[in-house]
Design a protein around this nucleic acid. Sequence first.
DNA 1: TAGTCAGACAAG
DNA 2: CATCGCTTGTCTGACTA
Length: 1006
Amino acid sequence: MSRRGRRSEITLPNKRNANGSNESNSLSESRRFSGYGDYFARKKLKLQEQHAARWAETNAEARSQLFSGLRFGINGYTNPPYDELKDMLITHGGTFVQFVENKSSIDYLICTYLTPSKRIAWKNYKVVKPSWVVQSIEQQRILPWTDFRTVGLSSFQTTLQKYLPKAASSTNGAVDETSDERIDREEREEREEQNENVISSTPTTPTSPKPNTNPVPPKEQHITPRSDTSPQYPSVPSTPTVLNDPVVEPPTRLRHIAKHELDGLSDASLYNYRLLQNPNVYKSTAINPQFLSNYFSSSRLHHISMWKMKFRQEVQDLLRSKQKENGHQKRKVSKFSTRYLFHVDFDCFFASVLTRDRPELQGRPVAVAHGTKNSEIASCNYAARDFGVKNGMFVNTARSKCPELELVDYDFDAFESVARTFYQILSHIQHTAIKVVSVDEAVLDMTDIFTNDDEAIKTAESIQTSVLEQTRCTVSVGIGPNLLLARLALRKAKPRGIYLLNEAVAGDYLKTLTVRELPGVGWAQEQKLLLRYKVKTVSDLRSISRESLMKDFGASFGAHLYSIARGHDETLLKEDMIRSSISVDVNWGVRFIFKQDVVDFLGRLCEELVSRMRDCHSRLQQLQLRVLKRAKHASFETLKYLGCGEVDTLTKSAFFNEPTDDTALLTKKCVVLFHACSIDAGEIRGIGLQALKLSDSGTSSKQSLLKLPLLNKRLVKDTPIPSTLQVANTPLPTKTVSKLVTPIKKGPPDSPFRIPSTPIELPSPSQLDLEVLKELPTPLRDEIQRQAQAQKRSIYDIPTQLDSGFLQNIPTPIRNEVLEEHKRLHPPVLQLKSHKTPPAAKNVKQPLGATSNAFELMRRPAKRKQPLYEEVDPSVFQELPTPIRKEIKRDRNMQFRLPKTDTVAVPQHPVLSFQGAQTMTELRRLVCHWYKHCIRGPHQQDVDYFIKYVCKLITVEKNLAKAHMILHWFRHIVQPSQRWSKALEKVILAVQTECLARGVPPLMDS
DNA sequence: TAGTCAGACAAG
DNA sequence: CATCGCTTGTCTGACTA
Ligand SMILES: Nc1ccn([C@H]2C[C@H](O)[C@@H](COP(=O)(O)OP(=O)(O)OP(=O)(O)O)O2)c(=O)n1
């Protein structure tokens, strides 16, 4: 049976579908919608064969057909463990899906715990605990899965309660306890606290039964170490308890805090302490362990951000699988074709979806918002806009403009469903390229699809009709010869319209716009233009010279402003972009009392970040912590309930030698970064984590390094180089040092913690390490201690070795201290050894330890007369797409044909070198290597380095011919790849800008 | 002066 | 009761060696 055939038989499990027949059709399509790579398809088939064989070889008594026809996926930690569980499923007739590519490819997901974002993503699917499998097999019948939900209904209680009669909701929780019960509980909790050595505001025994509904638990339960039961890290529980999965009741209010604990707290913390006494506030703040998933499930901005990435991925997958099926290559747009870009966008997306089946709201002003006062309007319909209501406005303000404004609540499932239908329609329309701009907005490149404007408009009409028929919502289409004009045309088209804006009329139309209406000009730039030039309209803007704009707004943005004011826009449609960061941010509901509250929350954030990274198989080498702190002059109380108010932002980074997705490690670093910020817990109004310098977890670290042939110094510097510096195994005088140094084993994935080169404030040396350790989330702290014990070493020990990377990266005063101490302890002979690297090599970037890599290849003397393609690893060469192979071969031929290019330009000025390359041959080779090792697209930083170098060729080496040649070569090599188009565009633009700024004629026609 | 990085900004 | 101010990419200025 073909895969597709099998897949289409499957009924979607438990998928909510409230919206009529049209979208129910789309569900079956949605399965087809995300495409599969061939590799995965084959891999899956092979696995299924293996599973069938496994079933057959099991003896007859031990096997059954209990799960026949059902497909299962397993996620995260389970008990029984993964392999055992998988075996149980297979031997009882189930289909095991190893790669769960989309939710509808399985009927049940088996897992013990889901992270907040996964909880949202899977909320309409069957997610069960492992014990469901075990018990079903025991009883030889499929037990009701609802009795084994991984995500209990309790997590949706907040939402459900809205719809329950008031009396029903009061049966829940401590709110109703009698005063006697409360006193009992408070005494108990106080006893409990005496066993606690860490101060935090979260109740600490989450698995113990709720006090008011159960008899007082025996004392032992209270002193159970938190690490055994902590809800934050259930993926590493030390005691398997899954057979009777305990129901974890989330705390409903702030724990009792004794008076003495409040001593020394800041005013901000005390303010929060009082605030958090209210259980409603507690429930809605980051102090509550349940907060993250509740919050994200109602955050519109979280949803639209996640959808954007999701649809981008789905569209890419679909197109790729389509291309594979049809075997056709991507269309190449001829330089001379008339460009048609379609910018398609729903009219007031959220509002349209929510009002489409409510005739009583038609024609009336409607807005989508959570609250009634200082709540933001996500989307309002055009009737509301007539009153001056706008997206993003507070309901208060909107009501003052339009008292009869109707408010409606969000329905994220409906938005997603409509968007999916939208993208299915767009993907099936013939186009040359498609870009997902947001959940409700896309740009189609329709160049070469039709020959005249009428055909273009007809196609736009058919898009409108299809979308309206299938979603009952309207879209508008803006058509233009470039991205700018398509976007401006869209504005003219709205609502429910189509508008084609060509260059001939664009000029006049643009003059009527305010600068704010230009894409890329927001509030800040608008103000700046007004203050600096008194410029308000695009017409005013045209009177400002290019030079002034470049001077005042930077070369890049200034030149861009100048161009777009005239309707010019060379930006290419970036179809598939490679993500260069993944982040988690929470800037609402952030109110802490103690540092430990922050640390616990950081633990949960890290977990969420890691989960998102793993979802896209990424690992990071840079972790950035962002903290929002109440602005000095801002009051404790914010205008928006639990909002962040006016804040100052602080960012700090940590770097890793090896790509990592280790939650414990990341949490540890996070906590250190947090301490480096020296912020009072009570002042924090927002926290975010960002993963940067990503690489694919499918590849080894060596491969991921190869992705950076034009490696930046930082990474080279960070790579541990064998050091002979020996430090006696006796404690150094300052504890600061011991905190900064993680004990170095023979090459742990991530040895010393890197402190950024800019100085950061550290806690006082005498407190540092103990404090950091103490304030780690409890489960993590225990884990570290366990590990340390296992290594028969206290974690306060100093390392036995220091590497020079470490020394370079600690703050200067501390480094000096370390070196002083080291000098005192060590004979000079050892130090001499450390200078093995000859001084001449000082400026040469360190090779990456013992790894042989692209850089070494690149730095080889260019004298070698080998043809280039011989340098390409033959296996890699074979795997390259034919056009690229051809390019490389052609490259080799060109080298022979142009043997004298090295002498074409005799430099009159200092000859600059770029990654060791100086001559054209070397430079060409470098570019080829770069391209070859970054088939998936270059790293941004490498592109910037390249730009800088080419600009320097113009300004410093003053060798225009060389700049010209290398630029052409670069274009020649990378042009065939879509993944490089952004880089190419950027390089050309930057160099042209440089030329203009220097009064040099442009080096190439863009 | 080149290389970093924190921070500001825009978009939906 | 309120309310759910995210996430990604790009650019620039300041700082450092
Ligand atoms: N400040 C904002 C802006 C937008 N959105 C959400 C709700 C919108 O429906 C959706 C799409 O944003 P658009 O900017 O496209 O606005 P609309 O679709 O609502 O209206 P328009 O017809 O102007 O496109 O994104 C939001 O939550 N908050």
